[in-house]
Structures are given as structure tokens and as C-alpha cells.
């Protein structure tokens, strides 16, 4: 891969994967909160729409992570010491 130059980690940046998964959870939970909320579940949570609020919080978190990774991308340097052996002391 010597022809490649430095570039951002993109979709495989761990922050984007976290944002994707937690964001998906957030959307599903908001939908559950809006359409799946029953009196039995309200009794469990003590009259809080827990799915809705947790879903909103997760969605906000996911957007924050996506923005963070967009503003400060991790740069992949193909010439980096990925094997971890370059700085090994020379054998005696």
C-alpha cells in the first residue's frame, strides 16, 4: 500500500461506529417511547417515559461523537510503525 498517502480513518474510525450503533439505539428507543408506551411499562419506571428520554439522550450523544470525529479526524499514516517493531532496541 505504498502509493497511499495520509488520510482520515473515515467510516472505520471507532467514534463513527459508536455513533452509528448508539444512534440506532436512540432512534429505536424514541420510536418505542412514542408508540410502544403502555401503562404496564409506566408502572415499571415510575411514570417516566424512560425509552423516550434515554433514546433522546443516546441520539444527542451519537451526534456529538459524529461531530467530534468530523471536526478532529484520526489521521491514518500508512508509513506508521504499525508492527511496533521499529523502536525495538537492536540485538546485542
Amino acid at each position: 500500500m505504498s502509493e497511499q498517502r495520509q488520510h482520515a480513518a473515515g467510516a472505520f474510525d471507532v467514534r463513527n461506529v459508536i455513533a452509528g450503533l448508539i444512534g440506532f439505539y436512540g432512534v429505536v428507543l424514541v420510536l418505542m417511547g412514542l408508540f410502544g408506551n403502555s401503562p404496564a411499562e409506566q408502572a415499571k419506571t415510575g411514570d417516566v417515559n424512560a425509552n423516550l428520554w434515554a433514546g433522546i439522550a443516546m441520539a444527542v450523544f451519537a451526534v456529538t461523537f459524529a461531530v467530534w470525529s468530523w471536526l478532529r479526524p484520526v489521521v491514518v499514516d500508512p508509513g506508521a510503525d504499525v508492527a511496533g517493531d521499529d523502536d525495538r532496541p537492536a540485538p546485542h
Binding site: 480513518a9 506508521a80 504499525v82
Partner: peptide
Amino acid sequence: SDSLDFFLSGRS
């Protein structure tokens, strides 16, 4: 992807 490699490899 070399991006994924980056996240999996040592010392980076």
C-alpha cells in the same frame, strides 16, 4: 481497509 488496520494494529 487500512483504516481498520490502523485501529487494530499495535502502537498507533
